[in-house]
């Protein structure tokens, strides 16, 4: 990966995971430009929101959902997971590569896991490089 490449990452997260991802220390800890979108429940991440994050220049997009069985709205995290799977396939069809989109179960307030997962998304970009549609 080009040394000057500072990836742009968009993070969609449920407010039950973090009240506001933008104010998390992860923003400072990870080597990327992080933009976060908070949602009342992860199930509100629609296909088009995920795609638009790439249209807005995201190199990778990450979705944080509550652990299985812990969604406050019972099955919101399962819905989000299925939707992400569909959009990953669509990203393959688009030619952007579905690996640019990832989803992780995060326990409420687990900042260490959040940092780790965003770092994982960044390291996956080593293969993929910058978003080719910007």
């Amino acid at each position: 990966m080009n040394k000057n490449f500072k990836p742009k990452i968009t993070l969609f997260h449920c407010i039950n995971t973090f009240s506001d991802g933008a104010s998390l220390p992860i923003a400072a800890e990870v080597d990327c430009e992080l933009q976060s979108v908070k949602l009342p429940c992860s199930s509100m991440v629609k296909d088009v929101f995920l795609l638009r994050s790439f249209e807005s220049g995201s190199d990778a997009t990450v979705v944080f959902i509550c652990p299985e069985g812990e969604c406050r709205y019972v099955e919101g995290n399962i819905r989000a997971k299925k939707r992400v799977k569909r959009v990953k396939d669509l990203l393959d069809e688009i030619g952007l590569d579905g690996r640019r989109l990832s989803i992780f179960n995060i326990s409420s307030g687990d900042e260490a896991a959040a940092v780790q997962n965003i770092q994982k998304a960044i390291s996956d970009l080593a293969d993929l490089g910058p978003n080719p549609a910007v």
Binding site: E55, G95, L96
Partner: peptide
């Protein structure tokens, strides 16, 4: 509406990539 929006975005991305 949702499918129109998703397809629009997908089409724009794939064309832009080319």
């Amino acid at each position: 509406e949702d499918e129109v929006a998703t397809l629009t975005s997908a089409l724009r991305l794939t064309l832009k990539k080319d």
